[in-house]
Design a protein around this nucleic acid. Structure first.
Lengths: 376, 376
DNA sequence: GTTCGTCATGGAACCGGTTCCATGCAGCGC
DNA sequence: GCGCTGCATGGAACCGGTTCCATGACGAAC
């Protein structure tokens, strides 16, 4: 009963006694088909169990119905929501999403080179990855539309946040609590590059450090270089760096970590060193990953999921032929207060507010924080 | 200079003064090509900047060079390593990986139906998702190879772990510490289904509960139904359930949570209730997600990354035409001891081992955990 | 010198659709 | 009754490769 060979469009045409063009029109819902003909063709399609070949359709139309997403270090908690946001939009728009995870520069180059190949992907989204000028040029020449998330690429639509402002917000909030000795824990430039790993987080960490410095300078606060510690990305390293800070003769009363993962390392160091949080040490993170809420970490919320969704929407717009302007799209940040921060020298053993959650402030952007709103 | 139309194989053939067949042979490294001819063709390829059309190659060969991976709730921390493992293997084998994230049964059905379409994917990997008999039949009939991870599908190669044994291991370890009143926090069946959400975790949670019961019965320990709490998946719910247990007149001295996410909720409840861990309460999780290490959570380690990689390897084997036997592949589990567990009524304020990390034991299987084989 | 085998090669057929153009028929206006 | 318009339709050309078969040249064996 089931035919040995899968049915193709010619089989359907023969079975329905019409031409292949008519079958194609029925499948694609074209207007000029008589109702009786349409019904006949539909029956033939169902009788034969016909399913159009995805490949043949794409080749014939001249473009694949798939877009590629290149992400660094998929296991890193901040990239997953970005990816999920992009997948949700692309799936809804009917695109297949080819995910390329890269952990080394070699993998990055390999995937980027492959994706500029002909009929490989209708478009490409790169997340948190720097492209060389040659690579960007390759995309331009191959005619493959490109959008960037969390990274600026000249001439390419990008969805980013203002990390410098975020650094100012975090540090400013700690200053407003009366802290004056504020440490910083973030990523190194050299270490990561030298180790052959990707620069995930480095660029944003660097900008957040700049914001930290700006806030301290503006407040006339003690800007002590000895309180800045940088190392390879990862909670274990952050824990070691924080332990160094806490072991200083005159340790900081607050630490701003460039990412939540690193902030979690700072919390671990405090715990291990018997330093009470937030009684003796306030900790601010950045990103608002899922674990931050679980651990009661105050942080700067970045719209991770939304950034992926927006990047995907903009790529879809380009694929529809729309012009995307302006190239730069900036998402807002907000301060999320939980139980890892407190006024300096207050609440010795006392816990802060029982429900630590929702007090949050709008970003410097002045945009409405309605969405992505309160916790618990 | 750059041609208005991208070069195709006929252009290369014309430029090199050979036939299209010869160009194809050069590109694919076929044997029977004279060296001088090969060089001429190579030059023409480079001069024209020719890149083969991915779509045309796939259509011509009759199969796409892409496999699809269907995962539930991508943002859930335990699925990400699985996905990463699969991506790593597939990328290395030269396949594109189309990722389908599903959060609702409707999305699941939509994607599964689409993926059985002709020339859609060379093969499909499903993770932690139950397929209806009709869906499995659709795959069989469409000839799309299928493998499953963390789920048993009759007649389909699957890579799983023995959750029942894992439940016994966790509970057994707590029993060995002298605990007799051991609580359980896991997923509900009804709630999740009724809410229209997927059954992520439900099936494994159920099996882990069975293991918990077996261990208690075997030890003749107090198996108190009142100590079993089940609710929708997620740390916030787990926190509420744990709070209920801790508020009992005669609360448990240990809690086994069916997943690390839920265990983290249990830790939060203990923290909020002022219950010392592990002094007054021992907590065991399951999975060993990244956060578990950061929070010092003792747990049952499941080889998440490896499960994805193994599933992908098995799919590749099927695609090469190899027979995959046996269908069932079982990965081993191991107990990972950190600082959330301690002997009952010991170590009141005392922390356990200073370096909480690596003490780990092999599974109950008694087989070498190096290979992935062990069955009991 | 002839015949046969081997090897490099050209090119048509094919993968399975889309699209455009030519055709035929019906309806309409005069 | 005739010509024009327009719609439904059939089918060839095309998307861009792979593959197989036929061909021709060349060397070896007789």
């Amino acid at each position: 009963m089931p035919p040995s060979r899968p049915a193709r469009i010619a089989d359907v045409a023969a079975a329905a006694g019409v031409g292949v063009g008519t079958v194609s029109r029925v499948i694609n819902g074209a207007a000029n088909v008589r109702e009786s003909t349409r019904a006949t063709v539909q029956q033939a399609i169902e009788r034969l169990g016909y399913r159009p070949s995805h490949l043949a359709v794409a080749l014939s139309r001249g473009t694949p119905r798939a877009v590629a997403i290149v992400v660094p270090h998929l296991t890193s908690p901040s990239v997953v929501p970005r990816l999920a946001g992009a997948l949700a939009v692309l799936s809804e728009q009917g695109y297949d999403s080819v995910v390329c995870n890269v952990d080394t520069p070699a993998q990055r180059d390999h995937h980027l080179a492959a994706l500029t190949g002909r009929h490989r992907a209708a478009g490409v989204i790169v997340v948190s990855l720097r492209l060389s000028a040659a690579q960007a040029e390759l995309f331009r020449r191959s005619g493959t539309p490109l959008v960037a998330i969390d990274m600026v690429i000249p001439g390419v639509p990008h969805t980013v946040t203002d990390d410098v402002a975020g650094g100012r917000m975090a540090t400013g909030y700690l200053l407003s609590l009366g802290h004056r000795k504020i440490g910083f824990v973030g990523d190194t430039m050299r270490g990561a590059a030298a180790a052959g790993r990707l620069l995930l987080g480095f660029a944003s960490s660097h900008r957040r450090l700049a914001g930290y410095r700006q806030a301290l300078v503006a407040a006339g606060a003690d800007q002590d270089l000895a309180l800045v510690r940088r190392g390879p990305h990862g909670p274990a390293n952050a824990e070691a760096l924080a332990a160094e800070l806490l072991a200083l003769p005159d340790p900081p009363t607050a630490i701003f970590a460039a990412s939540d993962r690193q902030a979690i390392g700072v919390l671990a160091a405090a715990d291990r060193g018997g330093v009470k949080v937030p009684g003796e040490l306030s900790v601010m993170g950045f990103d608002d990953i899922e674990s931050a809420a679980l651990m009661g970490l105050s942080t700067i919320r970045q719209q991770l999921w939304e950034s992926g969704a927006e990047g995907a929407r903009r790529l879809c717009a380009v694929l529809r032929g729309d012009r995307v302007v302006p190239l730069r799209q900036q998402l807002s940040l907000e301060v999320v207060l939980r139980s890892s921060t407190a006024p300096v020298h207050a609440g010795r053993a006392e816990r802060p507010a029982d429900s630590p959650a929702t007090t949050s402030e709008c970003a410097l952007t002045g945009k409405d924080p309605r969405d992505a709103g309160g916790h618990r």
